[in-house]
Structure formats: structure tokens, C-alpha cells
Design a protein around this nucleic acid. Sequence first.
DNA 1: TGTCATGGTTTCCAAAAAGGTACTGTGTTT
DNA 2: AAACACAGTACCTTTTTGGAAACCATGACA
Lengths: 120, 120
Amino acid sequence: MQQSQAATELMTLRDREYKCGIDVTLALVGGKWKASILWHLAQETMRFSDLQRQFSDTTRKMLTQQLRELETDGLVHRKVYPQVPPKVEYSLTDQGRTIFPILELMCDWGRNYAQAGNQT
Amino acid sequence: MQQSQAATELMTLRDREYKCGIDVTLALVGGKWKASILWHLAQETMRFSDLQRQFSDTTRKMLTQQLRELETDGLVHRKVYPQVPPKVEYSLTDQGRTIFPILELMCDWGRNYAQAGNQT
DNA sequence: TGTCATGGTTTCCAAAAAGGTACTGTGTTT
DNA sequence: AAACACAGTACCTTTTTGGAAACCATGACA
């Protein structure tokens, strides 16, 4: 029996505890829109209205909500230009960019799954 | 203007349509437990009672529900031994195994995030 | 005969996530 | 003076998830 059990230390995130990194990741990007938002922002910085166009089947409210959480979690940067009408640009932070490989795999895997599934 | 827009064909999954592979992936493993379940099953085949022990903070109901969906989606194999008391073993299908790289990245990334986050 | 173990199911309820609609602020343009 | 553009907020409803507790089936075993 080994005593080198560095194992099950809990991770904390927004007052919740997680046993596994997977759960942390899902807590951050597991919502209905967040991962896609990050994916789009990974390609280019976008204004709020650009995002609205991309996510035309959601509401302004959901978008701002998700963006604010991503900002709070340090994955997205929000830059406000002090002008009228307002201009707000969203981009990934350095930390946000580190999740790109996961999104890429998820994109490919999901695409493959859907294709394979359609053959049955 | 190029016409080679193979781009936005929709993917279908359980009567819903998805624009992006990411959303398909999240639909399959984005729940509160599924990704972790797959992660554990990737290490070893487990009986239902093993899973109950691992996921001691969820209920039998949630576990069976999630496992059944994973089975329906072709990611998990359920093997029933015809004996009493019952014995049911869960393992990954070949398709289920293909998601392992994503889980691995998610696990690492989440762990790193939690660590980095704790320093602020 | 009663109890145990395993692997569930069923019903009901609470909480969380998502969505709809209307309203806001403010310089600029008409 | 009115309308517009952009990027929101506020308030409320609906839908989806998650969870607690009780119930079920069956053969072995005491």
C-alpha cells in the first residue's frame, strides 16, 4: 500500500468543489453556448453585434450573460470603446486561448460522431 | 465569392439539429455526470455498484439514467449476467473509447485552471 | 418464513438553466 | 423633435436537470 496518494484533493471554483478536472472544465464551458462562443472568438475578435449574428437563435440576454461569466472566469476579455453608439469587442484572454485544443477536438469528434451515426 | 461553401450543413442527433460539432459533443457528454462516468469506465470496466461507490454523491436514479443514455448513444456497453443477485457490468464501446483524448485534455486543463485560479 | 444483495423503477419536488418581452441610455442624424 | 444604433438590463415564465424517498424482483441463505 503506497502512501503517495496525492490523489483526491478537491478543487474549488466559485464556491463549489470538484473532484476532477473534467468537472471544472464543464463548469466553465459546459453551458449551451459558452464553448461555441469561445470557438468563434478563437477565430477572431468580435463585437457584440457580430456575436448576435452568429448566434441568431439565442437572445441578447443569454449572450451577455454567458459573456459576462466567461469574462469573470478570465477566459474572455471585454473591451468597451467610449463612443456612441456603443462599441464592445470580445476576444479571448491568454487563458482563454489555452482551451482551444479541447474545442478543436470536440468539434472534430462531434462531427465524426454525427456522420457515423447517420449511417445506421 | 467562392461557391465551395460545404460549410453549414446541419447535424442531427436525437431529433435536434446542431450547427457545430462542439454542440454535438456537449449534447452527448455535457451533462453533470456523463463525462466523468466515461472517464472512470476508460480506466476499467465497472459494475453498477462500483459506479455507485465512485459517484457516492449522486443517486441510483441519476446513474442509471445517464448510463442508459450513454448506452443509447453507443458510447457505453451494458452487459447483464443472468444471475441473482444481479450483476451488470459497464464498459466503453469502441466508439466510447474514441472520446478519451478529449476527456484527458479536459481533465488536465481543468486541473491547471483550478490551480492557477487559486493563486489570485 | 423472513432477510439480504444487486440493480434497478416510479413518483414527486426543487433548483438551475434557458428564453421572451419590454425597457434603458445617449450622442448623432434627419 | 423624433428616430436610430448599439449594447445592454429587468422582470417574469418555461423547460430541463437533478435529487429524495419509497417501491420492486429474484434467488440464496439462515
